[in-house]
């Protein structure tokens, strides 16, 4: 990944002008003091802005050998549906350049299994738990939300209205009317924070974002995977048996950053940026574009310590650039340099 001169130049511009505008303390005063990483999302105070993206973090236990889960800002677990789901037939994974296609098909233990088998461990954590849910109908979404509202240890609900790998999975995230209905139904069912996860598989993501906001969403997560396809040229068959899958990884990051930036212009809700975040600087891009927090997804597969490395990278950036907190960065991307003659 070659970083062009242009990019380096604009970074240093950000640095110097931030200093002027928010009068960030100079290095003398911040030396030895760690930056304040706290952010607030949908009324939830988080000790740092790094979360794990649904579907890439299992139910948490898969990562306990590697690091203390309480070091995360929040945990988002694999999508839970009303009934257990077997998931799609293998192969479910296809590597692509700087990314991968997946077609897992929402394999999960179902809401009852989740509450019985998975939740007890998650309840032992101090880190807020956001549960990602997917319903087949507006009523089912609301019912799932209700069952989670009763459960102890659930801090919020993320709505998967954007899964590309199950029949009808994208419907609620690509039609603003349906987005509105499902968010409103969940909103009316629960007092927990409601965070719809938006799909990039739309012409104008701001339309969907507005619908979700109008329906009472507390925050928005974006983006889910992009529908993609890979073909094995030796067999001349699709690499995934369902033809298509969801593309994730650094390959989609520019799309995600763009969509966060677009939504940040029209919606005043806190945004959670997702899409190919591998390093702290990747996360910083999302903050500048307007996200208040980020989710680390596919990177977890390559390196189970990825969320911790992203967190350390964010802190290092803040120190290096003289910021004493993460919040002053949010949404402060500067206008491009004027074109020179």
């Amino acid at each position: 990944m070659v970083k062009g001169k242009q990019k380096k130049r604009s970074r240093s511009t950000v640095h110097s002008s931030r200093k002027q505008r928010s009068r960030a303390p100079d290095r003398e005063r911040t030396r030895g003091k760690r930056p304040d990483l706290r952010v607030e999302i949908a009324g939830l105070p988080l000790k740092n802005p790094v979360m794990t993206a649904s579907g890439t973090f299992g139910y948490g236990t898969e990562f306990t050998p590697f690091f203390d889960l309480n070091a995360l800002g929040a945990i988002i677990v694999k999508t839970v549906t009303m009934h257990p789901r077997l998931g799609n037939a293998p192969p479910r994974i296809a590597e692509t350049a700087a990314g991968m296609l997946n077609s897992i098909g929402l394999q999960n233990v179902g809401i009852d299994g989740f509450r019985r088998e998975k939740l007890p461990f998650l309840q032992t954590l101090a880190t807020p738990l956001l549960v990602n849910i997917a319903g087949k109908s507006v009523e089912e979404f609301a019912d799932l939300a209700k069952r989670l509202s009763d459960a102890e240890g659930v801090a919020g609900i993320e709505l998967n209205i954007s899964c590309p790998n199950v029949a009808g999975g994208l419907d609620y995230g690509t039609d603003p009317r349906l987005t509105y209905e499902v968010v409103r139904a969940v909103r009316q069912t629960t007092t927990l924070p409601v965070i719809p996860k938006l799909s990039p598989n739309v012409t104008d993501v701001t339309v969907i974002a507005r619908a979700a906001a109008d329906a009472g969403a507390d925050a928005l997560s974006l983006i889910n995977t992009i529908v993609g396809m890979a073909i094995d040229v030796r067999t001349r068959k699709p690499k995934l048996p369902g033809n298509t899958g969801g593309l994730s990884g650094p390959a989609i990051r520019p799309i995600a950053v763009r969509m966060v930036w677009e939504v940040a212009q029209v919606v005043k809700l806190p945004l959670i940026g997702i899409g190919g975040i591998m390093t702290g600087e990747d996360a910083i891009e999302f903050f500048l574009a307007g996200a208040s927090a980020v989710q680390v997804g596919t990177a977890n597969y390559l390196d189970p310590l990825a969320p911790m490395k992203v967190l350390a990278g964010i802190e290092a950036y803040l120190i290096r650039h003289g910021f004493d907190a993460v919040t002053p960065l949010i949404g402060t991307v500067l206008p491009p340099d004027p074109e020179t003659e």
């Binding site: 299992g58 479910r92 977890n300 189970p304």
Partner: peptide, 15 residues
């Protein structure tokens, strides 16, 4: 089986 992570997170390598 094709797997992304190797430790149970991606659920890609089902048998």
């Amino acid at each position: 089986a094709e797997m992304a992570c190797g430790f149970g997170a991606c659920m890609g390598c089902v048998i």
